[in-house]
Design a protein around this nucleic acid. Structure first.
Lengths: 222, 222, 222, 222
DNA sequence: GATGAATGAGATTTCATTCAT
DNA sequence: AATGAATGAAATCTCATTCAT
């Protein structure tokens, strides 16, 4: 099989994996089920991905790649607009991405927790040799900082074109937007879309609030 | 064994569980290791807690109980201060709690995601019948909303005493503070305490920013 | 479980193993089937014997132990008879043992071929670390030469009491008897009990011939 | 490819198979390794031989063919000598053949055990339909009894020319020689060429003894 | 109530054999 | 006919959970 076909099959397997992970979660997902969802056997599955962890990594890589693609498309679409407008839209893009791709945002979060060689935290994955040697792990390492870099770039463009206040630390603003997004997603996951009955709060309002807050950091004081 | 002794032993087991969970994470923790850390055998462990999930729930319950205790102590300490001051201090209390008790904040988050019986996420726990019937699960259900209620109460007190702007939705402000705290914790977990080398940002600044943002929502416009 | 019970269970497992090996052979025997024949699960089976090879070794050990027991019983029964008579009876005992316990004689043969670190032969087992570290392998090494030693002893006794010709090499005579027995067994295996139709030979005659030949070596010339 | 070329390739594959079988044994031999030793791929290997068992059979066939060729050459060379001399030389030929071609003698032994479809033994081969339908299996069946027949013939010639005692059963004498040879080979395999250190016996002596014994059966009493 | 043994589910691997191109 | 990919059966292992004493 040539590279192209191999790659297509790999993508199909990742598709199936996402299906299964979404349905029953990483832990409860059986390799057997993933294989059969992909229309292949367990052994074939293993010949593509060496372990369940590697599959998770592949999903994570796809998530990050998708996010980065969105960023680049965005940069292209906003290249004639001010840095502020572009950055605000990036924030929106990120929070929407997380909200619409819950599996992906969870995978990314788990990945970033994983690579910290800290001894605390609820390790859902072990950083075993198998993981370290996996292609997707190495691919991830090459691009993991891109979303931050691209955001920082736009903030700096905004500072240059005068649309963003000059005294802001771009990385701080970026992290602040991530914090707002991730916080929102986590609260969303913990409360459910229909938060109303329990808390009598409209989540759209919360989301808007989070975005406004992150954006306010960039805007010049009147 | 009488109730008192039983309860003491139970607490020792939870202590041991926290040790092990902290060291290797929920997933990688083996019942065997927890038992031996507690100085008992696996079967004895099972006679106290019917499953690994139940152990996790017990840790979660302890976490929530501890948080609630802190809230009550706080309410008592701040009963003579304005609602605004009290609420701001609650926000600080919550973010500090999460930061200083990473295991607990993760446990609480996992719990809230669990009870939504969402089909997303990495599912560290299953909402099985066994879980539903467990003592700790029922205990949790009785108190799970208390932190929110208490916060909302203080905000309402602030609205009455005029220290908090009257047009704010107390639940929205509470959730906003949770969002800020959880977002901060997650970014912290994903980047590590020493975020500096990578991102050149001081996390204390980020934390202060998050708290200020959540607080600003409550303050009257000048 | 105390040692005694453990040992009984171990023996039951070996019983089951022999059943299955006898029925379908070592190669075609499934661990699953052996386990179910023993009324246990695969995992329990593995907790007693670490691999299929180890099981085979256990069977082999039992075979050798049984043979040695027979030898000792024999020595006791023949202690008042001449060395010649005793030795001849040992030869008979050995050939009968092989004929009546085909699985055992095959196992012993395979074992002796195995321990030769030769690079040729139809290796049915690998001398892996797992094998080397197995209890039964070490047990085997302690007793593997006993049958030879005991036979040699009796021949020497015969030389002393004058019943066996003085110029015979006891080890050569012993090996000669083994050769005769193993040759007979192999021809038996290759031709089947009912050799008649094909070769028109009575196997009993062949057997008697083999025994006579081995014995003749010991007898004094008239 | 024409028949000639095909046949040459087939022989090369069998060469490679013998290499691999000799090195690691039938069981541990991987089809992959055999293919690569033969400089072809697995699938090509399968296009020539339908299974591992068939490969083994091909080796066995070559072994038997070689043995039979030696027998015919022998018969031709000894046609002017007495039946006794010829037969004794056949015995020597057979034992030498086994000793010098250990793989072949094992293969032949395995084959003869196989066709008995015995349920004992370590079953290196299965008598499946696939095997039964294989070319080499059918070829084997046509010639498997030749070595016996040829030996029996010579013994009968000896009886006629008066060099061999008239009261001997030719088949019994033949089998007796096989028994002696196979017994010797098996003891050899189980003890190794350098038997001395362990047993203090010179194998050449044992071998001579075996041959003498088999021969004595034929000789007239003085 | 405590203990050692056993169970069951599922991950992972190895290899003979087959399929699709 | 040759190739790379896939299949299926079985070995082996880990661990949460349960059983028997």
């Amino acid at each position: 099989m040539n590279e192209a076909k191999k790659s297509i099959k790999e993508q199909r397997i990742i598709d199936a994996t996402e299906q299964v992970f979404s349905k029953v979660g990483f832990l409860n997902a059986k390799m057997e089920d993933i294989a059969s969802e992909a229309g292949i056997t367990k052994v074939t599955l293993y010949s593509y991905f060496q372990s369940k962890e590697n599959l998770q990594l592949a999903v994570t890589h796809r998530a990050l790649q998708l996010l980065i693609d969105k960023y680049y498309n965005h940069l292209n679409a906003y290249k004639d607009q001010s840095g502020l407008e572009s950055t605000l839209a990036i924030f929106q893009l990120f929070i929407d991405f997380c909200e619409n791709n819950f599996l992906y945002s969870e995978a990314l979060l788990a990945y970033f927790e994983l690579i910290r060689s800290t001894s605390h935290g609820l390790h859902t994955m072990k950083l075993t040799d198998g993981v370290k040697e996996s292609v997707y792990f190495r691919k991830m390492q090459d691009i993991q900082n891109l979303p931050f870099k691209l955001t920082v770039q736009e903030i700096e463009r905004g500072k240059k074109d005068g649309s963003i206040r000059p005294d802001i630390d771009p990385m701080l603003a970026t992290l602040s937007a991530w914090t707002a997004s991730i916080g929102y997603i986590k609260v969303l996951a913990a409360t459910g879309k229909n938060i109303k009955p329990l808390f009598n709060v409209d989540l759209e309002t919360l989301k808007a609030l989070q975005l406004k807050t992150a954006g306010d950091l960039l805007r010049k004081p009147e």
